[in-house]
């Protein structure tokens, strides 16, 4: 049973590590969001990020969502400025791919926990069978001796 437990723990660890490795492909590897202070300043001084209230995003159909990122060749000065429509499309594509990865990570973690639960139930059933078998053998031996 101990070997089975260790094997399961290894599998669970691999599953969790895979979650981390898979996730960077979308939302984690994209540039950091502006959370009050830029990253460089943040590294210089120690401070507490306080998020006083978690507030929902206001939906304003007329205004595209501002995405903070490094200037790309498309947005560098002197190059052709993209239309606001393409920016919105890009933001929306990122939102969808980020959401997909987050859903996958969520399901992956829950699958690992459910897997652990199913495994525990299987171990319990096996123990029950072994115990019944042992008790039967003990009863038979007792009867034989008496």
């Amino acid at each position: 049973m101990r070997e089975m437990m260790m094997r399961h723990f290894t599998l669970l660890t691999v599953a969790l590590v895979l979650t981390v490795l898979l996730s960077p492909t979308s939302f984690a590897e994209s540039p950091p969001m502006k959370l009050g202070v830029p990253k460089i300043e943040r590294q210089k001084e120690r401070f507490v990020i306080t998020i006083p209230v978690l507030t929902p995003e206001k939906s304003d159909p007329g205004k595209p969502r501002v995405v903070d990122r490094e200037p790309t060749s498309e947005t560098k000065p002197g190059t052709k400025k993209p239309s606001s429509g393409s920016l919105t499309m890009q933001a929306s594509r990122e939102k969808v791919s980020g959401m997909t990865m987050l859903v996958l990570a969520y399901l992956f973690i829950w699958a690992a926990v459910f897997g652990y639960m199913l495994f525990l139930r299987r171990v319990f059933r096996r123990q029950e069978r072994d115990l019944a078998e042992l008790n039967a053998r003990l009863r038979a031996l007792k009867a034989e001796k008496s």
């Binding site: 939302f27 959370l35 009050g36 998020i51 978690l54 929902p56 995003e57 206001k58 959401m99 987050l102």
Partner: peptide, 16 residues
């Protein structure tokens, strides 16, 4: 979590 609750204003998707 994924279909009903809104996105957080500052953090977006990752807040979920």
């Amino acid at each position: 979590i994924f279909l009903h609750s809104p996105m957080e204003a500052q953090m977006g998707i990752v807040q979920k």
